[in-house]
Amino acid sequence: MMNVELYDRPGPLERRRIRLWTLVLAIPALAGVIWVVTTLREQGILDSEAWSILTDSEVIVSLLTGLLATLKVAGVTVVLSLVVGLLLALGRMSELRWLSLPTRVWVEALRGLPEILLVFLIYLGVPAVTGLNISTFWALVVGLVLYQSASMSEAFRAGFLALPKGQKEAAVALGVRGFKTLRFILLPQVIRQILPNLVSEMVRVTKASSLGFVIGYTELLLSGEQAIEYLGGQYAVPIFAGVALLYVIVCLLLSWVSRILSERLR
């Protein structure tokens, strides 16, 4: 890791002061940890019996099924948002005002709306307006894509704006047509540039897919909740902890993949 030297190297006096403050702050921190552990223990939440529920095969299957549903929503949402987001970014950067202005309004408006509102709007609004039923899966995906594509379009746009103008000029001067310039010269560089952003957007989508909970799409969070309802409240903490662990694992995997990708792309 790169070491960002924000501060000067401490002198002897400062080092002593740092040691003192470390000690002073460590005491309440330690006390806090002890308090949490004893409280949990008194409430019987740390009992190994409750936690052993996480080794129960039915619970595992149920949570993994939920995880799969989460990944399905997240995967489809990410792919659609990337495509729509790129189109929105290109629209907003267009020199045609009838295209750039509406796109801009659309993006700004959608980025300002809570995702849960969009999900509800699709889930309840589409049947109300069209009379067609929409599955919870697609209601969730469309709701999330509405927000996420607007958000990703801004990431794309920032990437395009950060590219030196000369890259496009050099391609154009060689007689390369617009689409090929975009596809072979600009886009590869933009994607490399905004990869960290795109991964954090993917992490966001994964977490936001838990909104499936409110419309009854059985993803990871809801399957945890259903397991607790079935087994009883004393299992809430272990099961939610298991759910949390799965979310964290997915997100860590995403970061890991992005690190490998950006190293490969240099």
Binding site: P164, G166, Q167, E169, A170, A171, A173, I185, P188, Q189, R192, L265
Partner: peptide, 10 residues
């Protein structure tokens, strides 16, 4: 040929 070379960086 440009002042800033403008080679495709990737």
């Amino acid at each position: 040929v440009f002042q800033q070379f403008n080679l495709f960086a990737h």
